[in-house]
Design a binder for these strands. Sequence first.
DNA 1: CGGCAGTTTGATGTTACTCAATTTAAGTGG
DNA 2: CCACTTAAATTGAGTAACATCAAACTGCCG
Lengths: 237, 237
Amino acid sequence: MRMSWPCVTCPNRKLGFCGALLKSSEETQSEQQPNWQHYRSARPGEQIIVRNQAAEDVFVLCDGWAFRFFQLSNGRRQILNFLLPGDLFSTATVFEERPNFSAQALTEARLSGFSRSEVQARCVADLRMIRALAKLSVAEIYMADELVIALGQRSAEERVAYLFLHLMQRIAARSVIREQRYHLPLRQQHIADAVGLTPVHVSRVIGHFRDQGIIELSSGVLQVFNLEKLRRIGSLD
Amino acid sequence: MRMSWPCVTCPNRKLGFCGALLKSSEETQSEQQPNWQHYRSARPGEQIIVRNQAAEDVFVLCDGWAFRFFQLSNGRRQILNFLLPGDLFSTATVFEERPNFSAQALTEARLSGFSRSEVQARCVADLRMIRALAKLSVAEIYMADELVIALGQRSAEERVAYLFLHLMQRIAARSVIREQRYHLPLRQQHIADAVGLTPVHVSRVIGHFRDQGIIELSSGVLQVFNLEKLRRIGSLD
DNA sequence: CGGCAGTTTGATGTTACTCAATTTAAGTGG
DNA sequence: CCACTTAAATTGAGTAACATCAAACTGCCG
């Protein structure tokens, strides 16, 4: 059971950071679980990374959803991004011990933790690791820039549509989508915290989309009826 | 004249990416201008990087101010960040040929352009380059995350105060500040585009700060009279 | 059946935007 | 040095977008 975990939980290893790491390990290590990697699971809502708190490990999400966020002193929080299976919890964690953000599980989740020092050592030894990290880091910067654009320049409807399109694209990159139905285990509170609106207003926006026959979102499933329209509203340029 | 340029224009080479690059070149190259590096100047408002347009070079700002931005089809633009002397125009440009953003000079500016392929080659050869890039990339991600937080969760006054504090900190990191006076060559339009407000509202916010005796901003100089208060308004947590 | 978390709806308030006019500052040519 | 021009900043009035508060509704689970 445990031996087969990596393959079962990360069927799309080639997509993520996990891929480069494990590939680099296959050559130097046996089939056995190396001691610098370990698995862990998290319950919905469980805190995985606490801001400013030093952590030994670098985490990759194997299964389920999670998100990175920043907790403000006034009780609000900004969700920085959502993490899907295969995602590294920010490339910054590879280089910095104390993260500048927090992270928690959204659903039941499984994580893979890698010892940071070992990951760094592998970066030095294996150029492919560096390449993979560089790619991830570029993607992370672009994602953040896009969110800045959405938050700075777009209306409520546009932001929500943007978030849906963004998530749809990422989900579609790792699984086959049938009939434009996407599994989105988000409360409206999460959407609100991600796009800088109140849950009440998010509800109105989604209601409006529903009335227009653009989408339907209920019980964790987003169904898109009019992708064209959603794109016209939510795409950034 | 030309020989002494690098030192004159990048007095704080150790701070930036320029430092690692040139250091790595000192060992392998003579004192002469290497052919994979060249200088260039830009007039205020001149476009330096055009989104989606392939560029051979990676740019470092030597002197003056510039900014990265994204132009929306509705005429609006989001300024992603301001660039100060020593700054690399996004670490993403090192790895990707086609940038996902544009950039233009804010003031009279001098740039240093490095051939991307050469920079990449040096990354492979010299570990210090990688380390420098990793550090920059982490800083860039954190900067973007902070802006997301400011745009998503903070009021107009808080955002403007945040921008000032952020720029003050970066300016102070590269020059001695006397009596809390900072040279900020920004129009209110730039501030507006950076924090997602209209220029009119930015004017009101700054006017309000002025009335309260917190700051004074005119003819390109920001003077801070009450740093404590500015921090209470603008700091993120 | 009751309780609870999440969503929806309505009424009202606040923030920031828009439009337009006015003032200030910075050049420019006589 | 002073009128003239132009860009930027300020100010005011009216409006739109989103927040807030509170109540009602829904689905789910014990």
